[in-house]
């Protein structure tokens, strides 16, 4: 029976990979970020100054934290009505039909398109449209980035919401119908209240994805290292500043970028944890 023990030991050892990996990620990020935090202290988070000029170097993450939070939340706001109606379409109005299956696969396709393709499409196809509206000169900025981000996160919010909406027991809906409620009334008084926490979790998880998205945002947000001054103003997110500046960075600047990576890691982990927590409560 020593074969059994060897197998069990092998499986256990392989499970250590992820443990070591996670610990390694946290330690490496902390270690890399340490010089920046030592130099600037809390100011690294609260300051929005980003000055790489040698001699007067100063790095603060606030502009990028703000850029990340603003674009992601705006993306979420745009995403909610789209994902909500699509999940009602798939899981309520056309549940179990061919139409529903087709729509579901189309939405899944959205999730399969690489981020850089979204960025490129946003740059060449969407940006000129926004310029044509006259709201923006160049078409770069928070709104353009958020719009593309919203399209990118719709499939994540939709598939989970749809799954949860389709799990609302038919007998509850029938009870409301038998009392004379219309479909809309059943949706608002039975379906949504029953599925509420699951729907909220699906949007939180979609937000978690938006926070870490890099390429599409980098290509559309305008890459200005300041707190965005308006919807159509340029800005920068935590992920996009890393993508843009990591290659030429060294010393303190490198440490500052790794520190931003650490903060992004913490924010996304927190948001994802919250989403998972709500789902576990729901189930």
């Amino acid at each position: 029976m020593s074969g059994d023990r060897v197998t069990k030991a092998l499986l256990f050892i392989s499970s250590l990979t992820i443990l070591l990996l996670s610990a390694g990620i946290v330690i490496s990020l902390l270690g890399g970020a340490l010089p920046a935090f030592k130099e600037f202290g809390v100011r690294f988070i609260t300051s929005s100054v980003w000055n790489p000029t040698e001699g007067s170097e100063e790095y603060g993450a606030m502009a990028f934290i703000a850029g990340t939070v603003i674009t992601s939340i705006l993306a979420l706001i745009i995403c909610i009505p789209m994902a909500f109606s699509t999940s009602l379409f798939i899981a309520e109005y056309y549940n179990g039909t061919r139409t529903s299956r087709i729509l579901r696969s189309l939405v899944d396709l959205l999730a399969g398109i690489p981020s850089i393709v979204y960025g490129f499409w946003g740059f060449y196809a969407l940006r000129p449209l926004l310029v044509a509206t006259g709201l923006t000169d160049q078409g770069f900025g928070v709104f353009t980035a958020s719009l593309v981000l919203a399209i990118m996160i719709v499939p994540y919010a939709t598939s989970l919401s749809a799954e949860i909406i389709s799990m609302v027991p038919a007998e509850l809906k029938e009870a409301a119908y038998s009392l004379g409620a219309t479909r809309r009334e059943v949706i608002f008084s039975v379906v949504i209240p029953s599925a509420r926490s699951g729907i909220i979790a699906s949007f939180i998880l979609a937000l978690g994805r938006a926070l870490g998205e890099t390429m599409a945002v980098t290509m559309l947000i305008g890459n200005a290292n300041v707190i965005p001054k308006g919807l159509f103003a340029p800005g920068n997110t935590m992920a996009s500043v890393i993508a843009n500046q990591f290659g030429e960075a060294s010393g303190l600047k490198m440490s500052a970028l790794i520190a931003i990576g650490l903060l992004l890691f913490l924010i996304t982990a927190l948001v994802n944890y919250l989403g998972k927590l709500i789902i576990k409560r729901f189930a």
Partner: peptide, 23 residues
Amino acid sequence: IRSLAEILQGVPSIILGIIAYIW
């Protein structure tokens, strides 16, 4: 271990770039 995998799955890919760079 499962929760760790869930957390790791949510880590933005750019951060994994930083890690591979450091390592």
